[in-house]
Design a protein around this nucleic acid. Structure first.
Lengths: 229, 229, 229, 229
DNA sequence: GCCTAACCGAGACGGTACGTCACGTCTTTTA
DNA sequence: TAAAAGACGTGACGTACCGTCTCGGTTAGGC
């Protein structure tokens, strides 16, 4: 799964977008490659890959500060050689990036019944993510750490944040078509009006107080009031 | 100015709020202290303190990733012994925290003319801070770094974020009294409705596109529309 | 070769005496051990070990005072990481101890023709060692250094001094049997009567003047005169 | 008493021999000097000087390895500022040198009755010194330390060893005149025949066993037997 | 059923940075 | 001006990781 230059993992077919994943698959050509230049020698163990990522998750969940999660320590925890890690990822950054993807919750399922309901569902998924962060301490840490590592941050944005933003904009577009909100607004701005307050609570002040269950509804309704046609 | 346990900076007398700033001198009370419990031995050089902080700023502005800003390197850059740094700060975290405070822009001056104008001024100062971050690469990095270090993050919140939040809430309170917004709203929530969108732009997506000059006004007006009595 | 607790050098079969060397070998059992608990991971490089010891010797021969031969400097000189040194020796003391053994000259070859000749040969080897010390400045320094470090001094005595003392006593014993000296003497004392004067010259006053070639003969004959039956 | 360039101890007048002792005052002449070129400002406290040297002695007697007797530690122990030490000695070496002189036992009193008795008295003083060393742990350590510091070693030899060697040679010279030993011998060599064995016991093997009381007599008689006319 | 290439664990290797300590110099107040 | 205090630049200490590199020992195909 990593984008490491040394990566030679055979090929695991998959979705359609993910930038990094792209490097290792891609349809018929890959199948061809698989047949032609099938990797020789002992194939890499998927169990090892899981053990490594699980090791990082375990460490962070035990409360180890992310800064102290060294490759060396991950190797010890996972009972794995350092080289085995470097064979898959080029360094901490890349590894953490994959760890992050591994724990990232699924996209919320939208009913499409109304824009308001979908927006609340979106914000609710953010709220739950915030709660998960707080309880597991994982995302909250990895997230913060990432920002100091621009490369990883870019990947994260492209693979996690942007898709959700597009999803959110789509919901708003339907809201305009349905007449749920005026049509003379900048949807990008409107999107931020909804997600911004939620983020402030779940990321910037995650321990302010329990993220109350009703918060998404409150935000959506407060903002919507100013957007009605 | 650091909170290092070894800190023996003379003046301890202080005003009423700022925990860290407190440790520094400031007026007649301090002179008194100087006479009374004058520190013995050679006093610490303020020039050295400035040189160290300026060294960090210089490194970051040259584009050095914050992760590579080691104490050792700071010492070399500032032409200072490592021990001199550790005398003042207990480690990277504490140092960066003070660096951050050193570059933190001043609180915005509020006219008090109307709640709307004050809110726009507040958001405008956030926008400028975002721009500064992006151009200097400093705050953006230090900020991210801090979040992965809970201790520093806590200090930063207490000394920088919270005061501004209180300022912001005060503005809103006056808005309720003036009748600029309804009086049946949760001011904490309303505050997030204003600052959230601005933060999303300036912190989470600082390079999305230039932070347009009109953004604060747009946000304030959009949100206000739903809050009028 | 070091006795460092962290030492895990596999096992190098060898001679019969050296106390420290003993710790790492020992005949058939070792061969067994090699098969059974073959050291895992990359084996330590003997070339590196030599480079380190040679580095120390080179420094001392250049005239660097032993007090300035820091581990850090040895590492630089030998082109080696500090950890590589600490992996083998627990500190300066242990390292110097092995350096000393490395430069310690071989035991003299005794003809056994007569006690007098053997005694002269023993003293001659001490004289040459004294010369070597003076010209290379090495033993003279390491020797002095050692004495201030009881642990190393004890090892040195056990592995270098004692064996020679036993050798010397054996020579004297044969002298008694041959009738070359009286049989009512304390051999320990007699031994000191021979070696003491030589040591005073070669160790205590190494720069007094060249150690003349005839000195051993003079000492042996002068002392022997009082010991004849 | 130190030879430190910064030394400003008043009294420069001096006796006739001891180079180091010279620097200190000694009677009326000094008083005169004090009046004439009275040092300006606060005079140095002799109590401080004693406190420093006593501090070193105390540390060593407590069993602190000489290598850990840092200037910093001496200053703490003696309750004295570092600068106060550096004002008097240029560094560890010089300080230790004076410490050594402070604990060096007095020259033995020779009766002059016979060469044999005087030689035994000389060796007896060496024996006692050896015992003292062992019990106090001081000389034994300082002695060893010194040898690794050529400058101090030179001073020690000049002020302590040489005078005794001259004394010893003088005794032998009288022995030749008295007819107690032959007159065709190299006195330097003969001297070593007596002192060498004693040194081997008291310095090289100080803990071999108690230095028996009769040892000096045994050595002298054994060696003398071969030197009689 | 071998052969062989790649994987795997372990850990040595040359480095860099850590945080502490002592060096010898300096700068301050106090006496 | 000495003395105590302690800040200062320097640099060694011993430890921890970095990312690379051997080692002996597995696993898989492909012959």
């Amino acid at each position: 799964m990593p984008a490491h230059p040394a990566s030679r993992t055979p090929a695991r077919i998959q979705g359609e977008s993910g930038e990094a994943k792209v490097k290792r698959k891609g349809g018929a050509l890959v199948d061809l490659a698989e047949q032609q230049e099938q990797r020789r020698g002992r194939p890499r163990s998927e169990a090892v890959e899981r053990a490594i990522i699980d090791g990082v998750v375990a460490l962070v969940e035990e409360g180890v500060p992310l800064a102290e999660v060294s490759i060396e320590r991950v190797a010890r925890t996972a009972g794995v050689g350092k080289a085995t890690i470097y064979r898959r990822w080029s360094g901490r950054e890349e590894l953490f990036c994959d760890v992050l993807r591994a724990v990232e919750p699924e996209d919320p399922q939208l009913t499409g019944a109304s824009m308001r309901e979908d927006l609340i569902a979106l914000l609710e998924s953010m709220r739950l993510r915030g709660l998960a962060n707080r309880s597991s301490a994982l995302l909250h840490n990895v997230y913060a750490q990432m920002k100091s590592q621009p490369k990883v941050w870019a990947v994260y944005r492209a693979t996690v944040i942007e898709p959700r933003r597009r999803l959110s904009l789509e919901v708003l577009r339907r809201g305009v078509e349905n007449g749920e909100i005026r049509d003379d607004v900048d949807l990008e701005l409107v999107n931020d009006l909804f997600t911004g307050p939620m983020l402030v609570r779940s990321v910037m002040r995650p321990d302010d107080a329990e993220l109350e269950a009703g918060l998404p509804e409150q935000i959506v309704d407060s903002v919507l009031r100013g957007l009605r046609p």
